[in-house]
Nucleic acid binder design. Structure first.
Lengths: 240, 240
DNA sequence: TAGTGTAATAAGTGATCACAGAGAACACAA
DNA sequence: TTGTGTTCTCTGTGATCACTTATTACACTA
């Protein structure tokens, strides 16, 4: 089991003396974010961008040292990711990014079709013209940017899906789908690389969804999103 | 916003000198459980048994004092429950059991029908004769125990549902459903009290499910479970 | 009496320390 | 060389302390 050193961010010590002067006005900072949230976001980002290999373990202390902070915020961030099933607790009580078995992947795909199908159908019922334009723009962006980085394409794809899902007005559902995307995060990256390499286009499903939105047929939107998920899963599933 | 004192358990201090002798054999203790897990389980139990009122806030220190331990395990247990959306983080960063709005309840019900429908249908495909017997027994138990405590009935009902769901062989799905049940936990208790008071029987759905299992018609099992969820939700939804 | 500003208290966050268990490294014997 | 036992290090868990922020209480003034 490889151990990832994970030198993500070498920030300065926190309890070192404060920066020299800091004279002048402070920015309002509406929502003071805590250190553990920053670590959480940082780790999440590392996961979805494929910087951490599935199966690798990580220790609290080494991460804390990489971040240049004490172990407390790292501890909380890791436990949160475990609670969200993004990381798993090994019997030794150390945390690891779970390995993807074909069974687990297949199961998550089935759950995704069920949940995202619901979100898509309900989102279709509440779609506004502005949202429709944004979704169209995202799809165009993906199609007409052959040289875009996989990370960019993934981000556009994410915006397309979640833009539609959020329109459902079902925040709990959206959170659950986000959690599922996080769990398949390491694979999404692989998926996009395969797509880019083999020039596979799954945008037919996006177009079907847009069509369904225009015709105000929520059931068609649902079918299109499910097709999108299943087609992508077929590619990845074959490579597990 | 009421503050629940929550005197759950007055255990002895942890870092007090160890018990006098402890001579004799220790039980093997396969999985050494940590203090934060115990607190987590304890709080979970308090939630599903309705001991904590929705909307009430709780503080780390007061809980720690109730348990007679330091704040660390309580801190981790609370954050875990927040990560699982059982508790919410208020803007003040204090935690609370969320209030149930009709919208949230309705949304969770829709998600439940989607997810539990899937689990029921898939469970029906893998049901064994032994499991069928157990499910039949649970239903009989519920029907023929007019004086059973609501907590007992809830437990039997839970075993019926999750026994079926677990047969699906989809552990991720089962975990997600468990999380949803936890979120509606405070209402499940209310529900059972209403049922007991008004002698409402929802067991027709259980019988339909058993029938579907016997006839090997997974789709019918799905429909029965969805009917069960929606009927129960109708009762509760009307009282929100 | 009502409103406001200040002091006192409580609570969450982060750092550090202490401890116990697991794992690795190493030395010694067969 | 291989197996075994011991030691040492590493890691997670829990306790305690320090700090900052938010809430409450209280006193003073209009």
């Amino acid at each position: 089991m490889p151990k990832s050193p994970l030198k993500l961010l070498k920030s300065q010590k926190r309890n070192a003396p404060p920066p020299p002067a800091e004279s002048g006005f402070d920015v309002p900072k509406l929502a003071r974010s805590t250190l553990n949230e920053e670590v959480y976001e940082e780790l999440k980002q590392a996961l979805i961008s494929g910087k951490i290999a599935p199966g690798s373990t990580m220790t609290i202390r080494s991460l804390a040292q990489s971040f240049g902070i004490s172990i407390m915020p790292v501890r909380e961030a890791l436990r949160r990711l475990v609670a969200e099933h993004v990381l798993v607790l090994l019997p030794n009580r150390s945390v690891a990014l779970p390995l993807f078995t074909p069974e687990r992947f297949h199961e998550i795909t089935r759950i995704r079709t069920s949940l995202e199908g619901l979100a898509a159908e309900e989102g279709a019922r509440h779609v506004t013209p502005e949202l429709f334009d944004r979704l169209t723009r995202m799809t165009k962006l993906m199609e007409t940017s052959p040289n875009a980085s996989p990370a960019d394409v993934l981000e556009w794809n994410r915006e397309f899906h979640f833009g539609l899902y959020r329109a459902s007005g079902m925040p709990v559902l959206v959170k659950m789908i986000e959690s599922l995307w996080l769990q398949v995060g390491p694979l999404l990256n692989l998926q996009q690389q395969v797509f880019a390499a083999e020039k596979i286009s799954v945008y037919v499903h996006h177009h079907r969804a847009l069509e369904g939105l225009k015709k105000k047929k929520p059931a068609e939107v649902r079918a299109a999103i499910i097709g999108d998920i299943e087609d992508a899963a077929k590619i990845i599933g074959a490579r597990l």
